[in-house]
């Protein structure tokens, strides 16, 4: 886990590579290309890159038209604007129409850091996963990001890819096969399972390792696809370990925690604890400070596991 790469960096590289392979790939940005990392695509393929200025709604609508004419547009912006400012355009021009538009949503969650609460998207997973026809990927590292981008291009329909600003550990080896809708068992457990997504997967692995030394065996399930959610993998982990902690860099309402709660309530009701951002907005600070303040470090996950184990029947 020595190497650290931001998922937005991996996104930019994967998008550029896709552009080399497929002339139908086009990219749009809303004046944030250097931050979202669509810039290199634009530099390499200027005729296939459209900077739409600070106008996210028009970016999404234009992408819908490009897709209707056979292109595969990737729209990049910060998650807060791509999912929030342009929500109704995503809803009506992309999801309702089932058009082949991909949304690369960077700077998601509180690890956007110093920019603060106006920019920290804590609700985008919830509002994207509720949309019919939408696929939602939240990659945990650079390797998964490359897989998610390639999978998105192969899917005929709308895809939302959630990306982070900060460098995060590379968890997967080269050659990892990203299968849309298939959660990855990173660690088998016995006493409880951490179901994690995005940057919290690394924290979950660290928590599980520390608990191992105390003789507590924790499974880690990496849910890189929030929609369609992998019901089978979640239910299997729940049946095997009898308790689940969810971990996400998102509000505990409506995101991974919400999705897992829905699955468990219907298929396998067991004790569940959701770790993530409590029902509040972000604020300015260093990413590590914000994760600490919001209770989202490996230490907090360990506390959640120890609590949930006492509730097992």
């Amino acid at each position: 886990m020595s190497k650290k790469i931001a998922t937005r960096e991996a996104y930019g590289e994967a998008l550029l590579q896709l552009g080399r392979e497929n002339p139908d790939i086009v990219a749009l940005d809303a004046d944030l290309a250097k931050s979202t990392k669509s810039y290199d695509f634009g530099k390499t393929f200027p005729e296939r890159f459209f900077d739409m200025g600070v106008a996210e709604q028009n970016m999404i609508g234009t992408a819908a038209g490009l897709a209707a004419a056979g292109k595969i547009p990737f729209c990049s912006s910060f998650a807060i604007f791509a999912s929030g400012r342009a929500f109704e355009q995503v809803r009506n021009s992309v999801a309702y129409t089932r058009l082949n538009v991909k949304i690369g949503a960077s700077h998601a969650g509180i690890t956007v850091g110093e920019d603060g609460g106006s920019h920290a998207s804590v609700e985008d997973i919830a509002i994207m996963r509720v949309l019919p026809n939408m696929t939602v990927f939240v990659p945990a590292d650079a390797v998964e990001t490359v897989g998610a981008v390639r999978a998105a291009a192969a899917i005929d329909g709308p895809v939302y890819i959630r990306l982070g600003r900060s460098a995060v550990p590379v968890l997967h080896k080269e050659g990892f096969q990203f299968e849309p809708g298939k959660a990855v068992v990173l660690r088998e457990g016995k006493d409880a399972t951490i179901v994690a997504t995005g940057i919290m997967v690394a924290a979950a692995l660290e928590a599980a390792e520390q608990l191992e030394s105390k003789g507590i065996r924790i499974g880690v399930l990496d849910v890189h696809t929030i929609k369609p959610i992998d019901v089978e993998a979640i239910v299997n982990a729940a049946r095997k370990t009898g308790a689940v902690v969810t971990a996400e860099e998102h509000s505990i309402i409506g995101g991974l925690g919400g999705a897992v709660a829905e699955v468990l309530a219907e298929h396998c009701p067991i004790p569940l604890k959701r770790v993530g951002i409590p029902d509040q907005f972000g604020e300015s600070g260093a990413p590590a400070e914000l994760l600490e303040k919001n209770g989202m470090t490996p230490r907090h996950l360990i506390a959640a596991i120890e609590e949930i184990i006492t509730k097992k029947g």
Partner: peptide, 17 residues
Amino acid sequence: GQGLSAANGMALAGRLD
């Protein structure tokens, strides 16, 4: 309010192709 943006996208695609 959404139709002109889509039309722009179709026009851009026509030019590209």
